[in-house]
Design a protein around this nucleic acid. Sequence first.
DNA 1: GATGAATGAGGTTTCATTCAT
DNA 2: AATGAATGAAACCTCATTCAT
Lengths: 193, 193, 193, 193
Amino acid sequence: MEDFLRAAERLFAEKGYRQTTMEDIARLAEYGTGTIYRYFESKEALYGELLERKLAAYLDHLRERFDAQASPRDRLRTLVRAKMDFFRQNREFLRIFAQEFVPEATSMAAALTPEARELRERCLTMTREAIEEGMRSGEFRSADPVLVVTAISGLTNEILLRYLRAPEGEHIGEIEAFMTDFMERGLLAGERP
Amino acid sequence: MEDFLRAAERLFAEKGYRQTTMEDIARLAEYGTGTIYRYFESKEALYGELLERKLAAYLDHLRERFDAQASPRDRLRTLVRAKMDFFRQNREFLRIFAQEFVPEATSMAAALTPEARELRERCLTMTREAIEEGMRSGEFRSADPVLVVTAISGLTNEILLRYLRAPEGEHIGEIEAFMTDFMERGLLAGERP
Amino acid sequence: MEDFLRAAERLFAEKGYRQTTMEDIARLAEYGTGTIYRYFESKEALYGELLERKLAAYLDHLRERFDAQASPRDRLRTLVRAKMDFFRQNREFLRIFAQEFVPEATSMAAALTPEARELRERCLTMTREAIEEGMRSGEFRSADPVLVVTAISGLTNEILLRYLRAPEGEHIGEIEAFMTDFMERGLLAGERP
Amino acid sequence: MEDFLRAAERLFAEKGYRQTTMEDIARLAEYGTGTIYRYFESKEALYGELLERKLAAYLDHLRERFDAQASPRDRLRTLVRAKMDFFRQNREFLRIFAQEFVPEATSMAAALTPEARELRERCLTMTREAIEEGMRSGEFRSADPVLVVTAISGLTNEILLRYLRAPEGEHIGEIEAFMTDFMERGLLAGERP
DNA sequence: GATGAATGAGGTTTCATTCAT
DNA sequence: AATGAATGAAACCTCATTCAT
């Protein structure tokens, strides 16, 4: 079962949901085609299960590193670093994630399960709350928090998509520093240069 | 032929490349299925042609508004406003565009033609050159220009995806102001707050 | 389309619904497999359409010969004769019909459409009304009309199934005479022998 | 082994032969799937064995109650009552039986074993001999005995199918009385009303 | 040029049967 | 003896593409 999820993750990320066949997945997992159906009701269910598991793992990953006591700015830094770490270990998933993470979007791949929606929402909420608190405390300047979250999501997703392809470990520190810096300049209260 | 491209744009954006059938396109264009093949070799060729035309139109749109004499900061503002304008008039295309605009990405829909790749590159180059010049002139702080372009692309794409769904004209000014401000704070040289 | 219905009728009757494949039907109809789906949404829809058409034809056939003015006894005779005629010209359908004609039964083949149910009901109603009227007029002895209809249906179906296999035209007169006589003796009022 | 036959009987009757999977049967019998194959060569063999056993039980049931000394009319009455009793205790089997009992029919489920054919034949023969003797003795009027047997089979099968669904014990006496009466009126010699 | 019926390769899914444990 | 995971042939269905009209 794990075998199928692993194979599916790799192939969905590489070729997309529709272009990946159940036979592809079975072959990569080194099983017969029919075997998948002992564990998953359908291709869509397999996709759903994959998304749920990954999103749950991502949410756990974020929560583990999250420090509710920290200042909003530090929380945001932590979230960026955690996102980066997670996707360095889950490079394949990033592509799927980026597609499914536009909250209002009907994915073009397959319908998200309610559980997956819920998880996606919670991931976004962590960032949004940090931002809202920062705005209340005056540390961040005022803006529509949803707009800010959207900007940050898009920015980080795209950079990760672009740079996580690079050979392991290259510039990673710089990239993270750039993202954090860019975001903070955009967010922190104070005079514009 | 225009009819087919228009129909294809709408359907690809709505349902995705794979879920859209040639019959769907023909029906929406009010032609017979076979007729498409008088103008396009294959579904993939139709998709490629669509992308090329739209990217060319987008590039034209950017160029028309672009003022090579303006300051880098103004050029960037102009590019953001132009992007926003273009996609307000081409809402459907935005979804396709966002998917195909990650430069290194193998598209999950169909292979991009070399011409489309070229056009995509040129769009990005306009922004990159403005940024590079701004850095040289000291107006912008120093950073990897590709990283900056990627951040800006992701940020604007995601916000547009999220907000262009909104009923025509709503908040558009504010959204554009937010994007410009956020980007400029991130880019302009000077002390961080 | 007619071709497919004809082929399906023959094969469903011969081998049953489940054992008949869409490829079988296409091959017998001398078309490619996919062609069927231009005319019928699914195998089940094809089966439903077949049943509806045939039941409608059967009902028409009965109605054409039916004489509402005739005595109940004559009406019954007519119905038996009409049934026999119809199934002599629709031998293949008889097998399907016999399976689907037990009114309360969930068919084991595929779900009947509401339209088909309606038609089946109307066929049975014609007989039931003749019987009820005969009972009211005293021509027939009293009994539960539904029980009587069921008995007559089973009796005639089974005989037709058994004898319509015989080479065309053999004994047909005798068989019909037997059925009519057997039923009338069972129904007509008066002393039992 | 009995467990499997019991489970199979129930499921074949409920859902039909093809819709019932070996896994269904094993699960209901509370064994592993593979275990069935210790006792039965194949699904078809299981079906055959089930039919043979049930038909043998039915034949035994008929024979036990059968009195060769009785008058043809009483023998027929006994056979009808016996049939009714048997299927009240074997409701599930009735559906299978009704399908397989048209003697000339190629079953649509699976091929009958020669043994099963033989048993089916013997059940029919008991009725046929009673009828033939009644005709010889003049108690019954003359007709093709096979036709008569077919009529009686169809009539009783259909009524049982229709009425044995009813809650246990309801109207059973009346239904039996109706069948017996209807048949006797059809068969007994003497003036028609 | 235009059509749309026809096609068949290829996808998803089912399930009788096998076999290592 | 018993198991149940694994299998793959075969079923249903989709749809890009062709071609006779």
